[in-house]
Simulated scan of single mutants.
Amino acid sequence: MRNFIGLTERPSLDNIAVTQGPVPVPGPGEVLVRVRATSLNYHDYLVVAGFIPQPAGRIPMSDGAGEIAALDPGVKGWRVGDRVMGAFFPDWVDGPPTDANNAAISGETVDGFAADHVVVPAHSLSAMPAGWSFAEAATLPCAGLTAWRALRVEGRLEAGATVLLPGSGGLSVFMLQIAKAIGIRTVMISSSDDKLARLKELGADHGINYRSLPDWAPAVRELTGGRGVDLALDIGGQSTFAHSVAACRMGGHLLVVGSTSNGAPELPLRDVVMRHIRIGGMAVGSVAHLADLVRFVEAHAIRPVIDRDFPLAELGAAFRHQLSGAHMGKITVSL
Rank of each mutant, 00 (worst) to 15 (best):
residue 268 P to D: 12
residue 237 G to N: 07
residue 316 G to N: 11
residue 275 R to T: 08
residue 148 W to Y: 15
residue 105 I to F: 03
residue 46 L to G: 06
residue 271 D to K: 15
residue 152 R to D: 14
residue 282 M to T: 13
residue 308 R to P: 03
residue 269 L to V: 15
residue 208 I to A: 05
residue 109 T to H: 11
residue 238 Q to Y: 01
residue 320 R to H: 13
residue 250 M to I: 10
residue 249 R to Q: 13
residue 21 G to P: 13
residue 150 A to E: 01
residue 76 K to E: 11
residue 1 M to N: 14
residue 136 E to C: 00
residue 307 D to H: 08
residue 141 P to G: 01
residue 47 V to C: 09
residue 186 T to F: 08
residue 284 V to Y: 00
residue 323 L to A: 13
residue 189 I to K: 00
residue 225 G to R: 12
residue 272 V to F: 13
residue 293 L to R: 02
residue 43 H to T: 09
residue 185 R to C: 09
residue 19 T to Y: 12
residue 6 G to R: 08
residue 107 G to Y: 09
residue 223 L to S: 05
residue 11 P to H: 12
residue 161 A to L: 06
residue 24 P to F: 11
residue 12 S to D: 09
residue 224 T to S: 06
residue 45 Y to R: 05
residue 329 G to F: 04
residue 75 V to T: 05
residue 43 H to M: 11
residue 183 G to P: 06
residue 209 N to V: 10
residue 278 R to Q: 14
residue 103 A to R: 14
residue 215 D to E: 14
residue 279 I to P: 02
residue 299 A to G: 13
residue 308 R to I: 13
residue 285 G to M: 06
residue 335 L to I: 15
residue 120 V to N: 03
residue 70 A to Y: 13
residue 8 T to L: 14
residue 294 V to L: 09
residue 197 A to R: 07
residue 112 G to Y: 07
residue 335 L to K: 00
residue 238 Q to E: 15
residue 329 G to D: 06
residue 179 A to C: 02
residue 262 N to E: 14
residue 116 D to G: 11
residue 106 S to K: 06
residue 174 F to L: 04
residue 4 F to Y: 15
residue 185 R to V: 03
residue 274 M to R: 12
residue 55 P to N: 13
residue 271 D to T: 13
residue 267 L to F: 15
residue 68 I to T: 02
residue 321 H to V: 14
residue 7 L to R: 03
residue 112 G to P: 01
residue 322 Q to R: 14
residue 317 A to L: 14
residue 303 R to I: 05
residue 295 R to C: 08
residue 191 S to A: 05
residue 276 H to T: 07
residue 133 S to Y: 02
residue 224 T to I: 07
residue 76 K to Y: 04
residue 142 C to T: 12
residue 136 E to A: 02
residue 241 F to G: 02
residue 147 A to W: 03
residue 79 R to V: 11
residue 139 T to D: 07
residue 284 V to I: 11
residue 119 V to W: 05
residue 179 A to R: 01
residue 155 G to L: 06
